[in-house]
Amino acid sequence: MTQQAMYQPPTGGDPVADLSKAPLPTSKTLRSRQNLPIQLLRFISFDLRILRMVAKGHH
C-alpha cells in the first residue's frame, strides 16, 4: 500500500484560493464593466433596491 503525500497549506496568514480554473470574462462583459453610462444605471438601480429594503424595514 503506497502512501500519498498530503498537501499541507502554509501555516499562518490568509488562505490561498486557486483561481487558475476560474472563467475569464468575455469581451462583452469587460466592455459593460468599463462603460460609464451602464455603470451609472447599475449604481442607481442598486441604490433604489437598498433604499426599498431599508424603507420596508422601517414600518
Rank of each mutant, 00 (worst) to 15 (best):
P23E: 01
T29G: 06
Q8V: 07
D18S: 07
F46C: 08
L30E: 06
A22Q: 08
M6P: 05
S32H: 09
M53H: 15
Q3G: 08
I50Y: 14
M1F: 14
M6C: 09
L24K: 03
P9D: 07
P15D: 01
R42D: 06
K56W: 08
L19K: 01
R49N: 14
K28F: 08
M1Y: 13
K21H: 04
R49M: 14
T29P: 00
D14A: 11
Q34L: 09
D18I: 07
L40I: 11
V54M: 12
R31Q: 08
F43R: 08
P9T: 09
G12M: 13
T26V: 03
M53S: 15
T2Y: 10
R52T: 09
L30I: 09
Q4D: 11
L24A: 06
H59I: 05
P23T: 00
L19C: 04
M53T: 15
S20T: 07
M6D: 11
G13A: 00
T11F: 04
L30Y: 01
K28H: 08
A22Y: 11
H59K: 14
I38N: 04
V16K: 03
Q8G: 03
S45L: 14
K28Y: 08
D18F: 04
Q3W: 06
V16Y: 02
I50M: 14
L48N: 15
L51C: 03
D47R: 11
A5P: 04
Y7A: 09
P10K: 06
I50W: 12
P37W: 03
G13E: 02
K56I: 04
F43S: 14
G13N: 00
H58P: 04
A5R: 09
H58Q: 09
L40P: 01
Q34S: 06
L40N: 01
L40S: 02
L19Q: 03
P37L: 00
T2P: 15
I44V: 15
G12P: 03
F46T: 12
K28P: 02
R31L: 05
N35L: 05
Q4T: 10
Q3F: 11
Q4S: 11
M53I: 12
Y7L: 10
G57S: 15
K56Y: 08
I44N: 06
Q39E: 12
R49H: 13
R42H: 04
I38P: 00
A5F: 05
